[in-house]
Write a protein that binds this DNA or RNA. Sequence first.
DNA 1: AAGAGATAGTTTAAATGTCAAAGGTTTCGC
DNA 2: GCGAAACCTTTGACATTTAAACTATCTCTT
Lengths: 163, 163
Amino acid sequence: MDLEIIVQGAQAESKPELKLWLRLLSTTKLISHEIRRRLRAEYGATLPQFDLLAQLYREREGLRLGELSRRTMVTNGNVTGLVERLEADGLVIRETPDGDRRVTVARLTRKGEALFSEMAAAHEGWLRDMMADVPPELIQSMLREVGQLKGSARNHLSGAEEE
Amino acid sequence: MDLEIIVQGAQAESKPELKLWLRLLSTTKLISHEIRRRLRAEYGATLPQFDLLAQLYREREGLRLGELSRRTMVTNGNVTGLVERLEADGLVIRETPDGDRRVTVARLTRKGEALFSEMAAAHEGWLRDMMADVPPELIQSMLREVGQLKGSARNHLSGAEEE
DNA sequence: AAGAGATAGTTTAAATGTCAAAGGTTTCGC
DNA sequence: GCGAAACCTTTGACATTTAAACTATCTCTT
């Protein structure tokens, strides 16, 4: 039924970190699958595209592809293809600023703004629905605790990422 | 820096469900990236391969591909390719039982068992390390709360999945 | 037994994902 | 100003992902 089966056999009592990780992973997978399904069914969009549009929606003047890559946690080469497809759909345009010709900036078109604002409203509703059985206080405390977990993880990366 | 930027602009105060979701997503992405990097660097393995091997490690007599698909939350077609590559590496073997020739069962080889048991120990250590700054009580309470969230999400899927 | 229907895996196409290497551009040191 | 270093993006090779079509096999009803 679940990723958690990995350890629930012999020694599930110990290893709380592993157990928490598997539960986090299976939960986000569950919710992601659902959101992906609905995005596809109702808007013909994919989840990575939605994420990318979301970033551009917040920065109306556009973002450099490298910045998009950092914000969406998607690799550089991947952003290239994503933006290409979104541009083909007329949701995004690419421009090279005068100052620095190494740079490519992606920006939402009018059509992209309109579509994303629809999708965002639906997306938020889906989440509220899926979390309907969780009391508001729990949501608040999870927010805090997951934040702490994230901080801990960030402090113990092998890579060179700081702050 | 993060997925959470999606909403932190104008009206971050409201929409706690959305905020929690974005934080969950960015946290699991962060940890996944790190685990993937280390699995690749130290064992030349990918995360989905690790997940699949983990399932087989728990069921030494092997699992049908469909069951593997369900447990890893990976689609059917995907399991086919994964097992193919693992078989090519000599970590897994495929067999068709006598009773039902539609069925394919995947099982770990001696080599697969040895490799996975190494990887699993390292994997657990990485997690303990990344969660080092989180007090044990918090880990326990997150375990409970995330479980509740997962239950809620499962109850509000549009798909036909029950229990 | 025949055939409809269910089930198990595989295959396919399009998209996403990684990493590493290659491309142009800009900037810096001198 | 020139060459080297640094920067930004693209490209290429390959693995993973989803959804849907397809093949093979089994089961059940009649």
